[in-house]
Design a binder for these strands. Structure first.
Lengths: 201, 201
DNA sequence: ACATTTTGAGACAATAAAGTCTCATAATGG
DNA sequence: CCATTATGAGACTTTATTGTCTCAAAATGT
């Protein structure tokens, strides 16, 4: 029986996850565990992630054939979260200074996945290659000239330092926010104050 | 002759490098290559570093038995450089605000090795374990209360955000400084201005 | 309760980098 | 110029991780 010349049949058209409820749960558990594990250690191994997810290592490979596929999913998720944050921040409304304040408030609501992204645990190539990356940077960068026009942002600030300042303080905020005895509210409010002070007129 | 039962003899008491001029040159070449390679790619392999140094891979292991030993040397070198910068900055003289300005000026003079350190390419454990690390942080941190006393630094700034601000802007400055068409002087002067604006009263 | 899908566990091969060893050759210093 | 020392190159072992495969057991939904 076994030896028959069946053309191997490929019985399933590959396990396209996401169909059944169980698959959705498993995939969610894997992603959650990946976020937690990579936050703790940027170079967490597949085995560690599997253990954290309470899942067999082979199961992860069913959903994400290669490690790179898993990381790619995380980048995609993070950038889609960020995109939603940008929309909620309504970057083109009010003064530029107010827009940045709203932006940072929204950033602060994002979870540990963003912290990983900011901290550089995900491969930059995936970031750069992602279709949402460039447009999103452009949206934020566009706030600066508007701030120069409406007089709400420091006229001596150029694009690189503007973006860098926001990035740097956001990274710091995430770092402080997820530390043991941190007071989340205090961190966020100081974060907003620091950014404002750094970029305002 | 060869086959004789010589007890292997261990002729040299291990190659303690640093004695001869050639050894000094070789070691210097390795360290320089390691800095350059790690700056380009934080996870450069021993083979890549060896190639960059124009040296056999085995030779690197003669000087640094394990990769960790090489990284440790880099951490040590970087921290000793930083230490010298701290001394030149005379952190206890003048107003605290002026002290920070001098500190950042000195930081800006440090080379790509510091950039690697700031960018996190070196293992944090080595950093934390290094005897120079804690005292140096303390030196810098001590500037803040002095600035509160002499009225030159933002009274709402706490230690974590003070240190974080300096760290973040220094990282940014190194990043901009070593980019292709960068104007070093412009980067440094903007760096100093940004830090001052972020921490002054 | 049953047929199907999904999983966990373990064995396995493939890969990549680190670390070890040897030896002929080149550089060094006296 | 010669004895010594350091090096480069290559073969080799080791180790860690990734990715593949198989199969019995568990979960699922019908």
């Amino acid at each position: 029986m076994k030896g028959m010349a069946e053309p191997t049949a490929h019985p399933e058209p590959a396990a396209r996850p996401g169909h059944t409820a169980q698959q959705a749960r498993t995939q969610a558990a894997i992603i959650a565990a990946a976020i937690a594990s990579l936050a703790a250690d940027p170079k967490a191994t597949m085995g560690e992630i599997a253990r954290a997810a309470g899942v067999g290592r082979a199961t992860i490979h069913r959903y994400f054939p290669e490690r790179a596929d898993l990381l790619k999913s995380l980048v995609d998720l993070a950038l889609r979260n960020a995109s939603a944050a940008h929309q909620r921040a309504r970057l083109t409304e009010g003064t530029a200074r107010e827009a940045v304040a709203r932006l940072c408030s929204e950033y602060a609501e994002l979870g540990p996945l963003q912290a990983i992204l900011m901290a550089g645990a995900l491969p930059d190539e995936e970031m750069d290659a992602h279709p949402l990356n460039a447009p999103q940077n452009a949206e934020v960068a566009a706030v600066l000239p508007r701030g120069h026009a409406d007089g709400s942002l420091d006229p001596t600030l150029d694009e690189a330092w503007f973006m860098g300042t926001i990035w740097a303080y956001t990274t710091l905020a995430f770092e402080y926010m997820y530390q043991p005895g941190a007071n989340r509210h205090a961190v966020v409010s100081e974060y907003l104050r620091r950014v404002d002070r750094a970029i305002r007129t």
